[in-house]
Amino acid sequence: MSHTQQNKDRLLARVRRLKGQLEAVERQLEAGAPCADVLNLVASVRGAVNGLTLELIEDHMREHVVAPLAPGNEASAAGAEELIAVIRRYLK
């Protein structure tokens, strides 16, 4: 079973929160909210998208890069964890 199917509920919850945030941006724009308020909402959407992206990348790395190589290949697992940490810092 694919890691996206195994974590489907968690991923869909993130997508639904994103949808709600985007709808909030739409409501603010329709209401003529100050640009700073809209920008703050957009920044939160960006953070949420980055969080979803990071979760998908981490799961992909662990499922398709590390797991097939894990038995006896600790260097690959360590390298993948280092890469995940770098990506996490980049996306925050």
Rank of each mutant, 00 (worst) to 15 (best):
C35D: 10
I87K: 00
Q21T: 08
P71S: 01
V25H: 04
D9V: 10
E82T: 11
K19M: 10
N50D: 03
G47A: 15
N7G: 04
G72H: 05
L69W: 06
Q21V: 15
A75W: 10
S76P: 04
G32W: 00
K19V: 11
L39V: 06
A36S: 13
A36C: 09
D59A: 14
L52S: 04
A43I: 03
V45C: 15
S2Y: 06
I84N: 03
D9W: 07
T4R: 14
R62C: 00
A48W: 01
Q21D: 02
Q28I: 01
S44H: 12
R27M: 03
L18A: 06
M1Y: 11
N73K: 12
A85N: 13
A75F: 13
K19E: 15
A33G: 03
D37Y: 00
R46D: 12
Q21K: 02
R16P: 03
D9E: 13
V42A: 04
G72P: 00
D59H: 07
A70Y: 02
A85F: 14
Q28S: 07
A85Y: 11
K92E: 14
G51A: 12
L52T: 09
I87E: 01
Q28L: 11
L52D: 05
A78D: 07
A24V: 03
H60D: 06
M61K: 00
Q6I: 14
N73H: 14
A78Y: 06
M61I: 11
N40Y: 06
Q5Y: 14
N40P: 06
S44Q: 09
L11G: 00
L91I: 10
L54Q: 00
A13L: 14
L22C: 04
L41W: 05
G20E: 03
I84V: 08
E58I: 07
R14C: 04
E23G: 04
E74K: 07
R16S: 10
D37N: 00
A31G: 13
A43W: 10
A78T: 07
L29V: 15
E58R: 08
A78S: 10
L56M: 08
E81I: 02
A70K: 05
E74L: 08
A31Q: 12
R16N: 15
V15L: 14
L12C: 12
R89A: 08
D59T: 08
V42K: 00
R27K: 13
D9N: 12
K19R: 15
E63R: 09
T53N: 12
L69G: 00
E63K: 02
Q21F: 07
A70V: 06
Q5M: 15
V86Q: 11
D59S: 15
T4S: 14
C35S: 12
H60S: 02
V25P: 01
N73E: 12
